[in-house]
């Protein structure tokens, strides 16, 4: 008896459907709260090839919701740990691991190799990037996002249907992650599982795919709502003509006379404008510390003030910088709202 017997019994699957699943390729971008449960169900269902993309490492604070990871995985790369765990679940599935972020340069090339993209990301920049690359590669993608106890879900660019830009044409500065706001592990569990369900329907070509609809879920209230969305052909056409639109969200510094050092990752937003702003991610400091002026005051910032404090410790202790000031409270305190 096939391990898939219980799903093959369904008329929506059958032996033909199982064969479709086996031939299908799904890329999961972001193996976190959404990506973990989604991956487990897709692997369980026998999706033939799964791409696991994440450049992050397992943190202790991930364990309550990112259910592929165990205590002994802390500090290890998420994509590789996920692959090792999922291989044990189903040895028939082929995995491809990408321990790099999705970028404007690699997005289209990678996405072209898959049938469906599942969005497990936690930032707007990557969501727009997935959206634009999927338009160019002509692939559907299954979107989900969370804010505290609420979630949004939709399938974009499915059979020429509406895209993320048809709902939210422009990105926003209010880039608030689960790390910042808090989340109960079950909510990404629910949404990631619903995403997996949409992926299966797309592959099987059965049921009603959540295209042209935005599903809103409030976990605490136990409520759900569907909003109909229409295609904005101009938004889609812009991407087809001009390619992926970069999402750099500008902001103005309250005092642009000072020197600033931004130790956040390159994709983090917003980006302050100004000639005296250096962006060197914390992880690159030991390679690039020579770019930092050492003869005048430099204000070091990140999103919250924590990483910048670490950065100053490193620069002070290892490279003898004594001109650095931490921006307590992070970027929001030094920019004009």
């Amino acid at each position: 008896m096939s391990r898939y017997d219980r799903q093959i019994k369904l008329k929506e699957v059958g032996p033909e459907g199982q064969e479709k699943l086996r031939n299908a390729k799904v890329l999961i971008v972001g193996v976190g709260g959404l990506g973990c449960p989604a991956a487990m169900y897709l692997v369980g269902a026998g999706v033939g090839t799964i791409g696991l993309m994440d450049h992050d490492r397992v943190d202790k604070s991930n364990l309550h919701r990112q259910i592929l990871f165990q205590e002994l995985d802390i500090g290890k790369p998420k994509a590789m740990v996920a692959k090792k765990r999922l291989e044990k679940q189903n040895s028939e599935v082929q995995f491809k691991v990408y321990e790099e972020p999705l970028t404007m340069e690699n997005a289209k090339k990678i996405i072209q190799q898959y049938d469906v993209v599942l969005d497990g990301t936690d930032n707007f920049e990557t969501k727009y990037l997935i959206n634009d690359a999927c338009i160019l590669a002509n692939k559907p993608w299954v979107f989900a996002s969370i804010y505290k106890n609420e979630g949004q879900l939709s399938v974009f660019n499915y059979q020429n249907g509406p895209t993320y830009r048809c709902v939210f044409p422009k990105s926003t500065r209010e880039n608030i992650s689960c790390e910042a706001t808090g989340v109960l592990g079950v909510l990404p569990g629910i949404l990631g599982t619903l995403q997996a369900a949409e992926v299966l329907k797309i592959i099987l070509g059965t049921g009603e795919v959540l295209s042209g609809k935005l599903k809103l879920i409030n976990m605490m209230r136990g409520s759900e709502q569907i909003i109909k969305i229409n295609k904005r052909p101009d938004e889609v056409e812009k991407i087809r003509e001009n390619g992926i639109a970069p999402v750099y969200i500008d902001c103005d510094l309250k005092n642009a006379e000072h020197w600033y050092l931004d130790v956040r990752e390159v994709f983090e937003q917003p980006k302050p404008k100004g000639k005296k702003v250096l962006n060197i991610p914390l992880s690159d400091l030991t390679l690039r510390y020579r770019e930092i002026p050492n003869n005048q005051e430099v204000f070091v910032f990140c999103q919250s003030g924590k990483r910048s404090k670490n950065a100053i410790e490193i620069l002070k202790n290892e490279f003898g910088f004594h001109n650095l000031k931490n921006v307590e409270g992070g970027i929001e305190t030094i920019i004009d709202a």
Binding site: A144, S145, I146, S177, C178, T181, P188
Partner: peptide, 10 residues
């Protein structure tokens, strides 16, 4: 009428 902000978390 519903007012819908974009969400980023995941």
């Amino acid at each position: 009428v519903a007012l819908l902000p974009p969400f980023a978390g995941g």
